[in-house]
Amino acid sequence: MVKELEEVVDVPVVHVCTVVPISLTVGANRIDPAVAIPYPLGNPQLNQDEEFALRRSIVEKALKALSTDVGEQTVF
């Protein structure tokens, strides 16, 4: 999906995912490592504010990936 979206829309795409080796094999160009498979952008152990802050940090990294030029597959 990540490759086809980048090809068709012709804009940068960042893949937020937990199992980075799979994303690398699939061929994502920009990869943002996530927390866990059932909650990539969260952590039920944290309180609401802490969890929001964690999610924000992952999204900010995704945005950084989208605004960074890459020449090859890059894990942010």
Binding site: M1, V2, K3, E4, L5, E6, E7, V8, V9, D10, V11, P12, V13, V14, H15, V16, C17, T18, S23, A34, P40, L41, V59, A62, L63, L66
Partner: peptide
Amino acid sequence: AHAIGEELKQAQVDGIILTS
């Protein structure tokens, strides 16, 4: 992804976050 991409192209988005 191709079909989604066509729509997002129409919508003139500048970047995509795909979560898995």
